[in-house]
Simulated scan of single mutants.
Amino acid sequence: MFLGSIVFDVLLPGDSRSLKEKRSYLRPVIAALKKFEVSAAEVGDQDRHGRAQLAVAVVASEAVHVREVLDRCERLVAGRPELELLSVKTRLISGEDLD
Rank of each mutant, 00 (worst) to 15 (best):
M1K: 09
M1E: 04
F2A: 04
F2M: 02
F2P: 01
L3T: 11
L3S: 03
L3Y: 12
L3V: 13
L3G: 03
G4L: 07
G4Q: 08
S5K: 11
F8Q: 05
V10P: 02
V10N: 03
V10W: 01
L11E: 11
L11R: 15
L11G: 08
L12D: 00
P13T: 00
P13N: 00
D15A: 03
R17V: 14
R17A: 06
R17D: 07
S18D: 00
E21P: 01
E21F: 01
E21W: 02
K22I: 00
K22G: 01
R23G: 03
R23K: 10
S24R: 14
S24V: 02
S24W: 01
S24T: 01
L26M: 05
R27G: 04
R27Y: 10
R27Q: 14
R27L: 08
R27W: 04
P28S: 06
P28H: 04
V29W: 02
I30F: 00
A31W: 06
A31K: 15
A32K: 15
L33S: 03
L33N: 05
K34A: 07
K34E: 09
K34G: 06
K35S: 09
K35I: 02
F36T: 08
E37P: 02
V38S: 08
E42K: 10
E42H: 05
V43F: 04
V43T: 14
G44T: 01
G44S: 08
D45V: 04
Q46W: 03
Q46H: 09
Q46T: 10
G50Q: 15
Q53R: 15
Q53K: 14
L54P: 04
L54E: 00
A55D: 05
A55F: 07
V56G: 08
A57M: 12
A57S: 15
A57K: 05
V58N: 09
V58Y: 14
V58M: 03
V58F: 12
V59Y: 04
V59K: 07
S61Q: 14
S61T: 15
S61K: 13
S61Y: 12
S61F: 14
E62F: 13
A63N: 06
H65P: 02
V66Y: 11
V66Q: 06
R67E: 12
E68Y: 10
E68Q: 12
V69C: 08
V69W: 10
V69S: 11
V69D: 06
V69M: 12
L70M: 09
C73E: 03
C73S: 08
E74I: 01
E74M: 03
R75K: 14
L76R: 06
L76S: 05
V77K: 01
V77I: 05
A78P: 05
A78H: 06
A78V: 05
G79E: 00
G79N: 07
R80C: 14
P81G: 09
E82M: 02
L83T: 07
E84C: 05
L85I: 02
L85T: 06
L85H: 06
S87H: 14
S87Q: 13
V88M: 00
V88G: 00
K89R: 15
K89V: 15
L92W: 13
L92I: 15
L92K: 13
S94M: 04
D97T: 15
D97Q: 15
D97W: 12
D97F: 13
L98G: 00
L98K: 02
L98Y: 02
D99Q: 12
